[in-house]
Design a protein around this nucleic acid. Structure first.
Lengths: 232, 232
DNA sequence: CGATTGACTCGTACATTGTACCATGAGAGT
DNA sequence: ACTCTCATGGTACAATGTACGAGTCAATCG
């Protein structure tokens, strides 16, 4: 109850400088702003991963003092939330005609979502442990609407949406995590460490060596989509 | 390249005390051991979540000095790896007769896996960003073997395994994350925060309010399993 | 005009973390 | 008695998130 505005009020509501007339900035450091902070955070995350983002580093990149950030942002958590939502920005459907064929449409949609997350490899893991921002909700909404328009019964809608969500999330998280770990850590365990042949099936199918992520993703997705029945 | 044994050699190979004859311990603090460390770490994780596990706290719970841990363990990361693998310990299949019906068998298997992760809510998120330990590999192996025995063609095996893995991981991570966040953070965003009705489909289907996790999980899983065809 | 206010910046300071380094002790083998 | 290895743990340090409060500057009000 004590301090500040703690929550939804005040502070970063009014922009800054309120669009100052001519040009007191626009060259070196255009002062601070939520947008700039978030954009820089995304860059840092892309470049150095989740652990690479520290408030100090962020401030350095912005050419400001560390504590200045805290005027625009409550805490580091919020930086994560905002960066996440910004990275997964959702540009509406290409151009939805009238659903000529819904399955490829949904597949395309989910592939785009997945591609977006892969472009920012930190995002998938973060998304799973964080509140859903407006952009992700937008994607969910579009997915639901498309399925519904395709004729999926309301009773089956949630199952369909969640199944797809789960699948995409799982696939993307696994993928990014393998990528990151593949270089050092997991290499020790996955790649060579099957001396006695304790895992014959895995070894035979070369499960952990399979590099065709896109293909596997697509096929599994088709499997799921095939199970989703329009009408009933 | 400098220090210690850096990697796979020495140190915690020989147990400890080499099974000392009578009883210099077994009451207050039975000295340290990898097993005790890992077990306590799991308890701490269960009780306080990922952030609640600190080396100091772990040492306190064990009644030892902080640095003593580092004789048994390289670093905190390794504690996580070990705790994870220990939490997901895999007790073989109940009793595999001869595959009377493979689909329920696989479903049971995956539900058990999921239940195991839900019993340790920190494990799902951790598993996704970490190398696979022997216990998880064991589960994967059993899954693959079962599918293979059920007649899934080798060419389709990887897709089937990964699809199921992805689905289970996504579902479980989402579930635990919603649980954790549901109390405070996400409540602000998910539950009431749809004033203008920006997400009509989501709202109508009550997607984010649906609490029937088990049912949804099961149905989605059935969807997937139905798509996996034995033989071809 | 000067005083006040409020938006915004940032240096200092602190608590908390992982862990490097080093000193210590216990038991076994010589 | 000595030394060697196993094992413990205290001290110390660097990195982090962030509370606190002092500073700046422009707009507003008297």
């Amino acid at each position: 109850m004590a301090a500040k505005r703690s929550g939804a009020l005040g502070k970063r509501s009014g922009r800054r400088k309120m669009a100052s007339p001519s040009a007191p900035e626009q060259h070196g450091e255009p002062s601070l702003s939520l947008e700039r902070i978030v954009a820089t955070a995304v860059d840092l995350l892309d470049a150095h991963g989740v652990d690479g983002l520290t408030m100090r580093r962020l401030a350095d990149c912005l050419g400001s003092g560390v504590m200045s950030l805290y005027w625009h942002v409550d805490n580091k958590e919020e930086v994560f939330d905002l960066a996440l939502d910004s990275a997964l920005e959702y540009r509406g459907p290409p151009r939805t005609a009238e659903t000529p064929d819904w399955r490829p449409e949904v597949a395309l949609m989910l592939e785009d979502w997945r591609a977006g997350m892969l472009r920012h490899p930190w995002s998938a893991a973060l998304l799973s442990s964080r509140a859903l921002g407006p952009n992700i909700l937008g994607r969910l909404e579009l997915l639901g609407a498309t399925l519904s328009r395709a004729g999926v019964a309301d009773a089956d809608l949630n199952v369909a949406i969640w199944s797809l969500w789960n699948y995409v999330m799982g696939a993307t998280i696994t993928r990014t995590s393998f990528d990151v770990a593949g270089n050092d850590r997991s290499a020790t365990r996955q790649r060579p460490a099957h001396p006695g042949g304790a895992y014959p099936t895995i070894q035979r199918s070369r499960l952990l060596l399979d590099d065709d992520w896109i293909g596997t993703f697509r096929k599994g997705l088709d499997l799921l989509l095939a199970g989703i029945a329009p009408r009933s």
